[in-house]
């Protein structure tokens, strides 16, 4: 194969993968931005949404709905809604009571929730890989010299929907009243409370948004790859967190940028260097970024308050 074609193909794959990382990273970055906690269970919410996707597809086909756009739209909407409720409930039950607790408490609680979600799904749905039938076929082939690279329709769907989701969210955060309140709460929670912003509600909203964005990623990835199991949220969760750190944790555009940079870097690495070590590469990148540029690409360096 032409090496240019390989590189271009890997970049396309990387862009797809990166969009997914970016979508999940939003959940990490917004939650971290607003309450300064790493929501460990976020990757597992993504996993739950993959199951919900399959469940919705099965339900819709059971009821005889087979128009593809309708199926996709209803699945996406339903999965986002239910995953959003998961996000809300988890915050309410496991994190809110710890708001004034020790520093480690929310982190440990989140790890507990991560366990609970994985085991809850495993016990109820079994530990075998689950799958969905392929819904989108075909690809666009682009010739390069004697060779070609291709973009499948599901990859196009992933990239387009991710960008739409990101755009919509950016609009909400930048232009609406809710977005203003979110930004204010992120800057200074106490002051926002004094100014009459219902900060608890804003924090809940952020969890719901994060979960819903993770659900979008869950639906898209499931449509593209077709198979998943109860532990598939773990690795992708850490990588999405890497993306959030890479872009600058707390920064919304940073999450997307970090996701795409990580996705491309990982794809190029696995295409050109070694597939076995692609996860090592991603984690290595995480450690390196944290050591040398902890504020990330777009984040602001934190000033310690003394």
């Amino acid at each position: 194969m032409d090496s240019l074609a390989i590189i271009l193909q890997q970049l396309v794959n990387g862009l797809t993968l990166g969009s997914v990382y970016g979508l999940i990273a939003i959940g990490y970055t917004m939650v971290y931005g607003i309450i300064g906690m790493i929501n460990f269970a976020h990757g597992d919410l993504y996993m739950v949404s993959a199951y919900l996707t399959a469940i919705f597809l099965a339900l819709l086909s059971f009821f005889g709905i087979d128009s593809l756009p309708v199926v996709l739209f209803l699945t996406l909407l339903g999965t986002m809604a239910i995953t959003g409720v998961y996000g809300w409930v988890i915050e309410r039950v496991a994190y809110r009571p710890l708001r004034n607790s020790t520093r480690l408490a929310p982190l440990i609680s989140a790890i507990g929730i991560s366990f609970v979600l994985q085991e809850y799904v495993r016990i109820n749905q079994g530990s075998n890989d689950q799958g969905i039938p392929a819904l989108l076929f075909g690809a666009v082939r682009v010739p390069v010299g004697n060779d070609f690279f291709q973009i499948t329709y599901s990859q196009i769907l992933i990239i387009v929907v991710s960008l739409l989701g990101m755009g919509l969210l950016t609009y909400v955060i930048q232009k609406t009243e809710l977005g203003r309140q979110c930004r204010a709460t992120q800057m200074d929670r106490k002051m926002s409370g004094i100014l009459g912003i219902h900060t608890d509600r804003i924090i809940s909203t952020v969890f719901v948004i994060g979960a819903a964005m993770g659900a979008v990623a869950g639906v898209l990835v499931t449509l593209n790859y077709g198979s998943f199991n109860f532990s598939s949220g773990f690795i992708i969760g850490i990588k999405a967190f890497t993306a959030a750190v890479l872009g600058g944790i707390g920064s919304l555009p940073g999450a997307m940028l970090g996701g795409i940079v990580l996705g491309m870097a990982e794809s190029l690495f696995s295409g050109l260097v070694n597939t076995d070590y692609k996860d090592v590469f991603a984690f290595g990148l995480l450690v390196t970024v944290m050591i040398f540029k902890p504020s990330g690409l777009l984040g602001k360096p934190a000033v310690e308050k003394v």
């Binding site: 790890i111 929730i113 994985q118």
Partner: peptide
């Protein structure tokens, strides 16, 4: 067991 450990971790923290 892991389900129970997870729940207990959350409950302990609370």
């Amino acid at each position: 067991r892991y389900l129970v450990f997870g729940l207990l971790m959350v409950i302990m923290m609370i």
